[in-house]
């Protein structure tokens, strides 16, 4: 996941190979499921699954046989990426329990921490904390009261 991946030109496209493998598994599963469908509901899944498996086999063959350049590996911090996904998952999971407002305030602040690269000064922290409150609160008001979307209720509202 480090930025060094870009330099080696002759490396095999292992992520591509993994993707092809996953697509073959998905196609196989679809074919298996389709066996219990009625004819009209099965024709499309079967066609798509077959095309997907064929293309994946070709791709896998090409990756294994011809040394290919690995697609650009993105630079940057893998840890922060993982942290962001974890925050997003926790945010969504907390919504039904804690309600939209509480979950979003916590999620918002956590995401701010993940996206922050330099330490906060007190003034910055105060300003951005207030901004976070205003943004979450503003969106909440617009959606719940302006657009009539009943958002999940919980700890705060």
């Amino acid at each position: 996941m480090s930025a060094t991946g870009e330099t080696t030109a002759a490396r095999r496209d292992w992520p591509g190979l993994a993707g092809a493998g996953a697509a073959i598994l998905l196609g196989g599963w679809m074919l298996h499921e389709a066996s219990s469908f009625s004819d009209f509901a099965a024709v499309f899944p079967r066609t798509i699954a077959t095309v997907m498996i064929a293309a994946s086999l070709l791709l896998a063959g090409r990756i294994v046989l011809a040394p290919a350049v690995r697609p650009r590996a993105p630079g940057g911090s893998a840890g922060r990426r993982l942290a962001l996904v974890a925050v997003a998952v926790a945010w969504v999971a907390a919504m039904p329990v804690a309600g939209f407002l509480a979950a979003s305030l916590a999620g918002f602040l956590a995401t701010m921490r993940v996206a922050r690269f330099t330490p906060w000064s007190t003034r910055q922290a105060a300003f951005e904390g207030l901004a976070a409150l205003a943004i979450v609160g503003g969106f909440y008001l617009v959606f719940e009261w302006g657009l009539g979307v009943p958002l999940p209720r919980g700890w705060l509202v």
């Binding site: 962001l84 919504m95 999620g107 918002f108 995401t111």
Partner: peptide, 17 residues
């Protein structure tokens, strides 16, 4: 620091809506 959480908030809120 504010843009990333705001976009994330919009994806969650927008999808819910």
């Amino acid at each position: 620091t504010l843009l990333a959480p705001t976009i994330l908030l919009m994806t969650i809120l927008g999808t819910y809506a």
